[in-house]
Design a binder for these strands. Structure first.
Length: 887
RNA sequence: AGGCGCGUAGCUCAGGGGGAGAGCGCUACCCUGACACGGUAGAGGUCCUGGGUUCAAAUCCCAGCGCGCCUACCA
């Protein structure tokens, strides 16, 4: 508890490092397994090990940290479970690139050695993102950090796989999947990004097998025709109903293929004749199945044409497209080429054009799992916030399709399935079986595919807590309190966690899902490296400090809207941090000896006022945080601290603190100042952990870390924190009078150094009393040398006028009189009044309004009209007087 | 093709059936013993357009325009 004065400006860097280490070393982030305090838990959306911190993480982490710090101050036993995921494809790509640079490749290295390389990479670089999260101040329980490839989590993965397989919810089969020829693996439907591109629609004539003529088919991917096994037309299509031919000749391949009839074909598209390539198109695959067609694969897994493509074998697929088109043209079979915008799927990891490919893969049968997950949200066992996202959730869940979970890469959880070389039996078990249960052979070969990373991420809420063991952590902290995440992984991750959590834990994985926005650049564009519009959070932190950055993110995090990041705004909040710092600096100068408790019988109006405001703001901030309205909480505090605490309270109490005010009890005021500052620090701490901790330690009468203190109550009689309407009303009058006088000073261009003479006349005795009792404050704040209060009487001669409630305020212009200027000022003011009066009067002259509007609303309008009238009348009178004097 | 969201001050955005708000920027004045990362005062808006509901619409409903996003097996 040192009391050396604070530096003139706040310098974040040193403070942040110091306190973060302090917190960690003091074990303040640790969840307590044996505590009986209410449990509050969050699992972090695990960033990729390959990742670097971006704005999305920053927002995501900041919001979670605000919640955790808030709950901790509220006395909860907080567990914030951190970790990373192994990002199968992404990580493998990174390490492969590294190998390539060394003139190596993974195939020459071999699977085992390659995986060892990945682990090496992980050990060397894998904690980069974790260290970056720490820069944000995240109070994760780092001792519990998990990785989706950890032994424990790996066990959970195998357990889930085996169980689902036994339940018939995982199966293996030959289907069309999305294939990335570059990553050389299957992808789930979700992992394909569709992008509209300019392409061509080629119209190709397929001649009838006998006789003249043929069918014209339209295609955007002519190279796939090499694998065509039929041409389909709609049975209802008049154009083709009567054709007698049963077959066409597949051009270039010279293969006879049937003409089939299938409802699927859209008569309005192209020519109404559809080439059918069962091995390279999901719809064609279905048609092929319905009609028992062959499905030759003409595009290989490397993106080159396969043997089945005949003389085109070996050509790269897009090269082949050109060659096919050229040859068709040469043979006169290319009848037309149209421009066409169409959606093309790209690999979400490497952006390569995805190839639909027939392949044997493992799938999760999603429907039964989805049904439970839908019910959980419908029944409110899990709340999605903002509510509108539940619609998106339902929509996807209701239309869910089976999930392809096998990946043809090496880095990941190898699928725990073995094939018996002797009898072909498939054995699915947690651990490698010794012999085939069917034939007893010991020659078992493990499936080489690994599982989708999202498969292990789906288990995150319980696998991180030790499942499948029954642990204390699970007992205490599952289900988690809330999941905080961006909507971009609502399906990838949230939906799947819901399915797995409910299925395996028999309870939802989280009570709440708070879905936040994406961070975009200043123009609302998605930040991406290729666009070059990324703002690096770390550079923002270095420039403005973590607290300012966090506050910006919180203030921007309005529900249902994207965050457009602007450094200008961060700068604004850096000023706010500095403002707080200086308010504290000032306060601490007067709080050297600490403070006694607040004695409400000894305190003044402004003390009661600030305590009242504190009470209300505390309530509003609390409610906002409970409702995930971070921006409301942030702006409420900003407004209160800057414009009420600093602008008014600190200014008003200065005379008392400096001992210039004889009628004030400085000790009582100091006690209030201490209370308000302390509560401000605590309320602000979840948003600005560093600066609040720093000031906390300078504030006399505090002990230990602010993290171990208690969040203020909105109603705290012992500390004098209670709403006080009388004080608020009086303060409103005083500030209005002061502002009125300042306004005259400003508008009349009277220099601040000029001490003015002013007089207030009011017919209202209580108003007079209030003003009279606070004459010193008004005189001080408005810089007056003479200030008198009285009943309406003779009006001062050369004076400017302002009206507040029933008060007429006259500011003497003796010696500095500028009639024209004052006249203009009054005319402007009267102009505004007239407009307002007009709209109120219009309402009050409307009988329907008087009849149908709620009485309270009518009454309010009446009062307003009266007040406006009074103002208008007083100002007009003064304007008249001014004119008379000028004549 | 469907679905969702957005359109409010010069910029970035809150708000939301009954007197148009904030931050930044701008103008004027001021280094007043916490703070120029500051203070005081001020200017600035047909709340996208057109209908409808209502005593009352920036706010609710419908349509349109513009923008963004998500989902989708029309080759």
């Amino acid at each position: 508890m040192s009391s050396e004065p604070l530096a003139k400006g706040y310098e974040p860097t040193e403070v942040e490092d110091r306190w973060y280490s302090f917190w960690q070393e003091a074990g303040l982030f640790a969840a307590r397994e044996n505590s009986h305090a209410p449990a509050y838990s969050i699992v972090i959306p695990p960033p990729n090990v390959t990742g670097v911190l971006h704005m999305g993480h920053a927002l995501n982490i900041t919001l979670q940290d605000i919640l955790c710090r808030y709950r901790k101050l509220k006395g909860d036993n907080v567990l914030w479970m951190p970790g990373t995921d192994h990002a199968g494809i992404a990580t493998q790509n990174v390490v492969e690139k590294q190998l390539a640079a060394e003139g190596m490749d993974r195939h020459r290295l071999g699977r085992e050695k390659f995986i060892e390389k990945v682990w090496q990479w992980r050990r060397q670089y894998g904690s980069a993102i974790i260290n970056q999260l720490k820069r944000l101040g995240a109070m994760c329980d780092w001792d519990r950090e998990r990785f989706t490839m950890d032994e424990g989590l790996s066990k959970a993965v195998r357990k889930v796989f085996v169980t689902l397989y036994q339940e018939g919810l995982i199966y293996q089969g030959d289907y069309i999947i999305n294939w990335c020829p570059r990553c050389h693996t299957a992808l789930a439907d979700l992992e394909v990004e569709h992008e509209e591109q300019d392409g061509h629609l080629y119209h190709v004539l397929y001649p009838f097998a006998e006789g003249k003529g043929g069918l014209i088919v339209a295609t955007t991917r002519p190279e796939t025709m090499l694998g065509d096994t039929a041409v389909a037309v709609n049975p209802e299509d008049e154009r083709y109903r009567s054709i007698e031919h049963s077959h066409v000749i597949l051009p270039l391949m010279n293969r006879k293929i049937p003409i089939i009839r299938d409802d699927y074909v859209d008569v309005t598209f192209g020519t109404g004749a559809l080439k059918v390539t069962p091995a390279h198109d999901p719809n064609d695959f279905d048609i092929g199945r319905r009609h028992g067609l062959d499905s030759p694969k003409v595009i290989g897994d490397d993106g080159r044409m396969s043997e089945a493509a005949g003389r085109f074998a070996g050509l790269e697929r897009f090269e082949c497209r050109k060659v096919v088109v050229a040859e068709l043209q040469k043979e006169g079979l290319l009848k037309k080429t149209e421009d066409l915008k169409h959606n093309v799927g790209h690999c979400y990891r490497c952006k390569t054009v995805v190839e639909p490919n027939l392949s044997r893969q493992w799938f999760v049968s999603a429907k039964p799992l989805a049904d439970e997950a839908i019910a959980a949200v419908e029944e409110g066992r899990t709340r999605i916030i903002p509510e509108m996202w539940s619609k998106t959730y339902y929509d996807w869940m209701y239309n869910i399709r089976d999930w392809c979970i096998s990946r043809q890469i090496w880095w990941g959880h190898q699928i725990p399935a073995w094939t018996c070389s002797a009898c072909g039996e498939i054995v699915v078990e947690m651990d490698a079986p010794e012999r085939c249960p069917a034939c007893g052979s010991e020659d078992l070969v493990q499936e080489t595919d690994v599982l989708d990373t999202w498969f292990s991420s789906a288990l995150w809420p319980f696998s991180t807590m030790g499942w499948p063991e029954r642990t204390k952590l699970l007992d205490r902290f599952y289900p988690t309190s809330v999941l905080v995440t961006g909507f971009d992984i609502l399906f990838f991750w949230v939906a799947r966690m819901m399915m797995m959590g409910i299925h395996f834990m028999k309870d939802v994985p989280f009570r709440d899902v708070y879905v936040h926005a994406l961070v975009r650049d200043e123009d609302g564009k998605k930040m991406s490296k290729s666009k070059g519009n990324v703002i690096d959070p770390l550079s923002v932190i270095e420039q403005y400090g973590t607290d300012a950055f966090r506050y910006t993110l919180a203030a921007f995090a309005a529900q249902g809207r994207d965050v457009k990041m602007s450094e200008k705004r961060v700068e604004g909040y850096r000023h706010f941090v500095n403002k707080l710092w200086n308010a504290a600096r000032f306060s601490l100068m007067h709080l050297e000896q600490g403070a006694d408790g607040v004695d409400r019988s000894r305190i003044a109006t402004e003390d009661r006022w600030i305590l009242s405001r504190l009470s209300r703001v505390t309530r509003e901030v609390t409610e906002a945080l409970e409702g995930y309205r971070f921006n409301d909480a942030a702006s409420e505090l900003y407004q209160f601290i800057w414009h009420e605490f600093c602008d008014w309270y600190l200014e008003v109490i200065k005379p008392a603190l400096y001992g210039k005010s004889s009628d004030r009890d400085a000790g009582a005021t100091r006690a209030v100042l201490w209370t308000v500052l302390k509560n401000i620090l605590l309320t602000l701490h979840p948003f600005m952990p560093f600066v609040t901790e720093e000031i906390w330690h300078k504030l006399p009468g505090t002990e230990g870390s602010i993290m171990t203190a208690t969040f203020p109550e909105a109603l705290d009689t012992a500390s004098g924190v209670v709403p006080d309407e009388e004080a608020e009303a009086q303060m409103a009058l005083l500030t209005a009078v002061i502002t009125g006088i300042r306004n005259i000073r400003g508008e009349m261009n009277l220099p601040p150094s000029l001490q003015l003479t002013a007089e207030v006349q009011s017919p209202d005795a209580p108003e007079r009393q209030t003003i009279e009792a606070h004459r010193a404050i008004i005189a001080d704040m408005a810089r007056l040398k003479n200030f008198t209060v009285g009943s309406p009487g003779e009006k001062p001669k050369a004076a400017a006028t302002a009206v507040v409630d029933s008060c007429a305020i006259y500011v003497s212009l003796e010696g500095v009189i500028d009639f024209d200027k004052e006249r203009q000022r009054l005319e402007k003011e009267l102009g505004k009044l007239a407009a307002e009066l007009k709209s109120v009067s219009k309402k009050l002259n409307n009988e329907d309004f008087l009849e149908k509007a709620p009485p309270a609303v009518v009454e309010k309008s009446r009062e307003r009209q009266e007040a406006l009238n009074e103002r208008q009348q007083k100002l007009t009178a003064n304007l008249e007087r001014l004119r008379e004097m000028q004549e």
